[in-house]
Write a protein that binds this DNA or RNA. Structure first.
Length: 485
RNA sequence: GCGCCUGUAGCUCAGCUGGAUAGAGCAAUGGGCUUCGAACCCAGAGGUCGCGCGUUCAAAUCGCGCCAGGCGCGCCA
């Protein structure tokens, strides 16, 4: 409102919505009229799919890179948490009007891949009866034995035969696990293309031209301290080979070149030393570093009751995402991953996630969902139609539990907007639990369908609105619920 | 030694762009089913917000210093 505009008119408009204003403890409290609050029900029912979408993205392009697990072994629960988080974040940002690309960076080059190939070769030759030891620091997991069995009758032709087979087989497994987990990607980027197309060399030359490279002790260094890093970083080692950072800078330039307004990297905790140098790299390439968001998803510690499950990737002893899905199911796994802040360490108790009891919040949500479905079914039997609900009289909703639900529904768009800005996905899971709690409380105290047809209709409309927001939230979190328990 | 994350009820955790009496679930205590599913609900109880100093009218929230736990720390990826 501009100064000098018609204030009295505005004031009257505002007063139309207000029941009362109170002055308490130094705060002014404004109370909305009940019918204004109840309006939210009609707003939702008119557009159940679109309600709550803040449109703040306004078509801005976001690149979201996540999981990006090296094809050297199956996905672990750490990847699972990142996958659940990334997929949910992508869905929420899309809902907020951003145009989101989900990308997986395929690390299919370098020393680790050579080690992988050698490890597979060792397993292969062991099957031929030769006693060939695994390379030092090689991959010891059983999964390589399984792959070796598949190819035991195939004679190796190319020198990179084992590398290729290993990467291919493991990648296929990764894609299967992701698909089963309900996580999909719009693009897979292979590290090899940056080498083959000379992009790594090009980006090094450009950085050199800009004066951010220098030679020392036989190596080529990136002056990342110019952008706030703790120390400069080697890009080309003294033996002439590249460090991991070099292709990664080329990859980030590729991200920038495609014209994204926002670049989000979701990384595991083993990469948090990497944040500053990536930001430095991006800044050196001329991209505003504050538009690169790096989210570190912290570790998950698995428990089986009191027992802490120790894991070691090197020794090949770890719980895979696949095993987790088989044991507790994809939906329970996702919910446990998503209702804690990403940067918090997560204690995940397999026993609790499997338990069909109060300790498991997944069942709390399912139960709310099922109750809402049953009310709808019962209402249909009693002759209520969804179209009728649009005519419901919101002013009939006067119970405290009804007002609480109305308020919670009204908050939903703000929750989505907040998450879209802060990237804190767990807030949606919290919201969902809170909505479920209010609903259970309401259900317990008040009958929706009664002899009073008008009141029944108003309450049914409320329940349908709650269910719309409830379902929407679950879809955004990529969690499905059974219709029966 | 340095960096990042964490420290809030017995347990697991929200709250941390500073604002009213610090919240939830589980566990524990007491109560509630003739009616849309009680896998639910209600009530009371449970706290030096790790410790100290500072900034502020106001600090769980911001700053500094400690203490404790986790992770990372390379011309590894």
């Amino acid at each position: 409102m501009v100064p000098g505009a018609n204030i009295t008119h505005l004031t009257r408009k505002i007063l139309d919505f207000l029941e009362k204003v109170e002055d308490k403890a130094g705060f002014l409290n404004f109370f909305l009229k009940k019918e204004v609050q109840a309006d939210i029900v009609r707003t939702i029912l008119r557009d159940p799919e679109g309600f709550g979408s803040p449109r703040l993205g306004a078509g801005q392009k976001v690149l979201l890179e996540f999981v990006s697990a090296n094809p050297t072994g199956p996905l672990t629960i750490a990847h699972g948490r990142q996958a659940a988080f990334g997929e949910a974040l992508a869905r929420i940002l899309s809902f907020s009007g951003y145009s989101v690309t989900k990308e997986y960076y395929h690390n299919d080059a370098g020393r680790q891949i050579r080690l992988l190939g050698q490890s597979l070769q060792a397993r292969y030759e062991q099957l031929q009866g030769k006693k060939l030891a695994l390379p030092e620091e090689g991959y010891q997991g059983e999964y390589l034995v399984d792959i070796a069995r598949k190819i035991k009758d195939v004679p190796p032709e190319q020198p990179d035969f084992f590398e290729k087979v290993a990467v291919e087989e493991i990648s296929r497994g990764i894609r299967e696990d992701l698909a089963r987990f309900g996580v999909s990607f719009d693009s897979f980027i292979s590290e090899q293309i940056f080498h083959h197309q000379g992009e790594v060399d090009k980006v090094l030359k450009d950085l050199e031209k800009s004066g951010y490279l220098y030679s020392s002790e036989g190596a080529i260094w990136f002056r990342s301290t110019a952008f706030g890093d703790d120390k400069d970083r080697v890009l080309v080692k003294s033996d002439g080979s590249l460090t991991y950072l070099a292709p990664d800078i080329a990859y980030h330039r590729f991200k920038i070149k495609r014209g994204y307004d926002l670049i989000i990297d979701i990384l595991g905790p083993d990469h948090h030393g990497y944040v500053k140098r990536l930001k430095a790299a991006v800044a050196a390439l001329g991209f505003p570093p504050e538009k690169l968001h790096i989210i570190i998803v912290q570790l998950t510690t698995l428990y089986r009751g009191k027992e802490k499950l120790r894991m070691s990737t090197r020794a090949g002893e770890f719980i895979t995402l696949k095993q987790l899905m088989e044991e507790v199911g994809p939906d329970a796994a996702k919910f446990f991953f998503l209702f804690r802040r990403a940067e918090s360490h997560l204690d995940f108790d397999l026993e609790v996630a499997k338990k069909q009891s109060l300790e498991n919040p997944v069942y709390y949500l399912q139960y709310a969902h099922v109750r809402m479905l049953h009310i709808n079914q019962y209402a249909a039997q009693q002759g209520f139609s969804p179209e009728e609900c649009l005519q419901a009289d919101g002013a009939l909703l006067k119970e405290a539990e009804e007002i609480n639900l109305l308020k919670e529904l009204a908050v939903f768009p703000g929750v989505i907007e907040h998450i879209s800005r802060s990237l804190e996905v767990h807030l949606l899971a919290e919201y969902l639990l809170s909505l479920a709690k209010l609903f259970h409380s309401y259900y317990q105290r008040h009958r929706v369908i009664s002899e009073n047809r008008l009141l029944s209709l108003a309450r049914l409309a409320l329940v349908r609105a709650v269910h719309a927001v409830f379902s929407r939230s679950l879809k955004l979190l990529n969690i499905s619920l059974p219709e029966r328990m």
